[in-house]
Amino acid sequence: MQNKNWPGLFLLTASLCVPTVQAMGLRSFVALPVDKGGKVVRLQYQRNTSTNTDVLTGNAAYGISGKQTLLFGLPYRVSPAGSDRTGDLSALYRHIVWQDDTAEGTRRLGLLGGVVIPTDSDRDARLQAGAVATFYKGRTEWDIDALWIQGLDDTSNQARYDIAWQYRLSPAVYPDWGIEPEWALDLELGGRWDEGNTMVHQATVGLQSIHRQWVFEAGVVQDLNGPDDTRLIFSTRFHF
């Protein structure tokens, strides 16, 4: 890859990494329930082994109420070096508009709206809107989300979707009382579209180590078409 291409590549990558529409899967954030006054922070490292690009993304969530959450994300390109390393700041508001909690699990629907704020004067802002749905029963959870990102001025439009399936590997049966660490398998299908290009579909396979106040997760993301890139993801999130 020529050096002159990497700023644009990073911008595209950064926009793809912005955790704007992400559920509780490896690549997701927005379906995570956050209690009122609660705060969740996630640090995610992603390495594109095809382009040798490393990006560190910081995410934060704050619970305004049991149904309202603010979600933020900011990527930073670790390598290659050079200018334009800081991506654009994503700010999303999530409102759970429907929730059906049962003894077996929960079903929820949330609406998303927000902006992408450029950190460079050469880039324009974007508006974003979408929805996220969660279905949880027994040991299985589905998180489905979609987001439209409207470019302003000369900025292109974007869109993305994610379908995440998580299955609790252990424990098979919870203890009667107390909170025990868990392991979960995560499989995802996602799509990323940038105006003027075809939708790139991606498959993700990952593992999550879930504890009371922190989660560590790792996985592999493979493009199913288009660039045919492979990415490794390592992330940790904790709440307080």
Binding site: P33, G38, A103, Y136, R168, P181, I210, H239
Partner: peptide, 14 residues
Amino acid sequence: DVHGMTCAFCVDSL
């Protein structure tokens, strides 16, 4: 009795 509880990370705050 509480409905909607899912994983360890989710219920610790409760």
